[in-house]
């Protein structure tokens, strides 16, 4: 939306050019021995915080996949004779207002929260990549229109967008995913556009074009591979944002609907002071699960950024 702001284009394009140059240098015949990918993997493995985050995420993923084997109760089994029980040998994290096992719900909620987070981020990255590449390849008014829209979407707080969408169309998981993706795609679009502009003028692209390559081919064979490292980084950080958005919206009652459990809607119960005061087992575990997962995703994202492009490191 701006002609004046510290130009949003220039840093993107400059950074993309640097990244592309690094790739080219790494892949050239002279440096030989290690591929850029192997070097990035090596840098990532040396980053202990990022590796720790990755290990935690694998753990959560295993828990989510094997939820039925881990939970000793059904997450939906209502037991009105045992509501709001404190943690015990049978109910490890106690029971909620309907007598459902909190530990089982926590474990099953990991499935929903991760699924929504990853699906929304994936959708955002795919849409963003397409839009960014089209904007960069076509240029002109298409570019202006697409990027203005992206800036616009970026400045709208996604929670408000989802509140309006969920409020008018009714809350559901697909709407949740679409609304979160609608707020996240511009970041990827701007990135891919930057890479596209940087790559567009390089000799190999001219060569491909002269050889008769279509725009679709250029996108698949040249632009996406050149941007892949950074797309992965942006995608990872989007997952963190998407998991948080899911949590917030479900907490407000606008996201995942009960009886299905998500970390956010488990916290929905914690809007009463009695629950906060005397039943911490209802709100502490899901809150910590969200915080730990999002933190881990961010650790991995930062680690990937440093690994893919050391010059863009946050610790300059």
């Amino acid at each position: 939306m701006s002609d004046l702001r510290p130009s949003l284009d220039t840093p993107d394009v400059a950074a993309a050019e640097v990244a592309v140059a690094v790739d080219a240098a790494g892949g050239g015949p002279r440096s030989g021995r290690r591929s850029p990918r192997a070097m990035a993997a090596r840098r990532f493995r040396r980053n202990r915080v990022a590796v720790g985050g990755a290990i935690f995420l694998v753990l959560i993923l295993v828990v989510a996949v094997f939820a039925p084997l881990i939970a000793n109760h059904s997450p939906y089994a209502v037991d009105l004779g045992a509501i709001r029980q404190p943690p015990s040998g049978d109910h490890w994290l106690g029971t909620d207002a309907s007598g459902r096992d909190v530990f089982a719900r926590l474990v099953y909620a990991a499935r929903v929260s991760l699924l929504v987070g990853v699906a929304a981020a994936l959708l955002a990255v795919v849409v963003g990549t397409l839009v960014g590449a089209v904007a960069g390849l076509f240029g002109g008014w298409i570019d202006t229109l697409l990027m203005r829209t992206a800036d616009m979407m970026l400045s709208f707080p996604n929670i408000v967008v989802v509140i309006v969408l969920a409020g008018l169309l009714g809350p559901s998981i697909p709407i949740l995913v679409i609304a979160i993706a609608a707020a996240e795609w511009p970041t990827a679009a701007r990135l891919v556009r930057g890479v596209t502009l940087a790559v567009r003028e390089r000799e190999y692209l001219h060569a491909a074009r002269v050889a008769g390559a279509s725009r679709g081919w250029l996108l698949r064979k040249h632009i996406v591979p050149a941007a892949m490292g950074q797309i992965v980084v942006v995608g990872t950080i989007s997952v963190a944002g998407a998991i948080l958005s899911e949590a917030v919206l479900s907490f407000l009652g606008l996201g995942v609907q009960p009886p299905q459990a998500s970390w956010g809607n488990m916290l929905n119960d914690a809007q009463s002071l009695t629950v906060i005061q005397s039943m911490p087992w209802l709100w502490l575990p899901p809150g910590l699960a969200i915080a730990a997962t999002v933190l881990s995703v961010n650790f991995v994202g930062d680690g990937l950024r440093d690994a893919v492009d050391p010059r863009q490191s946050g610790r300059s």
């Binding site: 914690a270 969200i290 933190l295 961010n298 650790f299």
Partner: peptide, 14 residues
């Protein structure tokens, strides 16, 4: 990193 990772409503409850 912490404040963008911990949901604010959870901080509020705490």
């Amino acid at each position: 990193l912490g404040v963008i990772s911990v949901p604010s409503f959870f901080l509020g409850i705490v």
